[in-house]
């Protein structure tokens, strides 16, 4: 238990430090972009959130397969935690996108492929969470959730590559087109790292929390049974 505690604390410290560094990057270090001005800085939030939204569902997919194969509740808790976090990050990704779109393009939303597929991802997360919510018992929730986790993942590759697939006004593969200065790229990398560490940290904590809650409930049932 001691080792776990120090690991958790270390993780939290690393996450916080990275985050402070990222904030410094985003607010102070990176240069202001020429055409879009200060609002472009949302990009440094938006991109990591998008990446983690996709990673989240990939983890749900992976966990779902493992659960159906091994039938250990740990995998199910992992999947549902990943879905919870992935959903939150995807929601933030959409919100940050809108807040960037309004000053940059003048509209809160357009139906370009990139945004449309992002919205689809959001709905797929909702499908996963809905199934778990409406399941008639825990085991069924885990099993059905896994089904959604697997079939829903089929759409994820298309969501990921939709920017390169369809040309539109979305500032898509800027990173690869060399449209960013080195400072910007570096700032972006820091931000991605910070958010990723945060995500992983939350995921680990949430999964272990669910595991413990499950264990405590099981023990309680055992104890109450004997009375």
């Amino acid at each position: 238990m001691k080792g776990k505690e120090s690991f958790k604390t270390a993780g939290l410290v690393v996450a916080l430090l990275l985050f402070m560094w990222a904030l410094y990057m985003i607010f102070i270090f990176v240069p202001t972009e020429a055409t879009m001005g200060i609002s472009q800085r949302i990009f440094y939030f938006h991109v990591p959130l998008a990446w983690l939204g996709l990673l989240g569902y990939t983890l749900v997919f992976f966990g779902s397969i493992m659960y159906l194969w091994k039938r250990r509740s740990g995998w199910d808790n992992f999947s549902s935690s990943a879905a919870e976090l992935g959903f939150i990050f995807t929601t933030l990704f959409l919100i940050s996108g809108s807040l960037w779109a309004k000053p940059a393009w003048g509209v809160w939303w357009t139906w370009t492929p990139r945004l449309t597929t992002a919205l689809i991802l959001w709905f797929i997360y909702i499908a996963y969470l809905t199934v778990r919510f409406y399941a008639s018992e825990k085991q069924q929730g885990a099993r059905f959730g896994a089904v959604v986790g697997i079939v829903g993942f089929v759409d994820v590759p298309i969501i990921a590559i939709s920017t390169s697939l369809w040309r539109s006004e979305h500032p898509g593969a800027l990173v690869f087109q060399g449209g960013l200065t080195p400072e910007m790229t570096f700032g972006l990398m820091v931000s991605i790292a910070a958010f990723t560490v945060l995500f992983v940290y939350f995921l680990a904590i949430r999964t272990s929390l669910k595991q413990q809650e499950m264990e405590v409930e099981r023990l309680r049932e055992l104890v109450e049974q004997d009375q």
Binding site: G37, S39, I42, F45, L49, I95, S96, L99, P103
Partner: peptide
């Protein structure tokens, strides 16, 4: 400018809120 600050605020609020949520559950 306000958009950027709003986005930052929302993201921070959610992250912070999640931390509180975890602490509460623990």
């Amino acid at each position: 400018m306000e958009y950027f600050l709003t986005a930052t605020a929302i993201i921070w609020a959610v992250v912070f809120g999640y931390v509180l949520f975890i602490i509460g559950r623990q």
